[in-house]
Amino acid sequence: MRAIWTALTFVTLAACSSAPTQEQPPAGVEDRQPSATQPGAQTQPVQRPPVAGVDLTTKKAPARSVLTDPASILSKRSIYYDFDKYDIKDEYKSLVEAHARYLRDNRTAKMLIQGNTDERGSREYNIALGQRRSEGVKRMLMLLGATEAQVEAVSLGEEKPKAAGSNEAAWAQNRRSDMLYGGEY
């Protein structure tokens, strides 16, 4: 026996999704403004065009390039896991150490760690398993000098697979933690 119901037309909510952008504050010399003037006093504003200075002598190089330069280890952001495993494999320890060092040297830098799982099993239980992965990364970062305020560990469970497909090759790509800096998510 077979019966088909035809559905009615429906209309959808329009949604927009915008990724926040973050820009580095421009470096520059400080431009002093005259303080509050006396009421009724005649003051002449000092006309002085601003100068945007660049300082190459401090240790803090522009943050974006270090984090995105393919030659820099910091441009690598993903840690992969074996099936049903949550510990950081030896091959990823130097990567986590490098990011911990960056967070320690850049106290204003913030990081979001997203834990992911493969598609098998309960979506909600996979949220919890992905959380176990991201918290493992957070724990190691904090042992190496990052602070609680800098790092947030969250889970995307199986919801944002990197690789499509229901096979071990895809699943291995999806058992993963990703480290994202402020402005990148």
Binding site: A7, F10, L13, A15, S17, R123, E124, L156, K160
Partner: peptide
């Protein structure tokens, strides 16, 4: 991703939420 509400026979669906990010549970 669309969170939809329909009659128990699947007819008359309406979209309560549309998003470019996942919706679960």
């Amino acid at each position: 991703y669309e969170l939809q509400i329909a009659d128990a026979d699947g007819a008359g669906e309406e979209t309560a939420l549309a998003s470019f990010e996942p919706i679960i549970s």
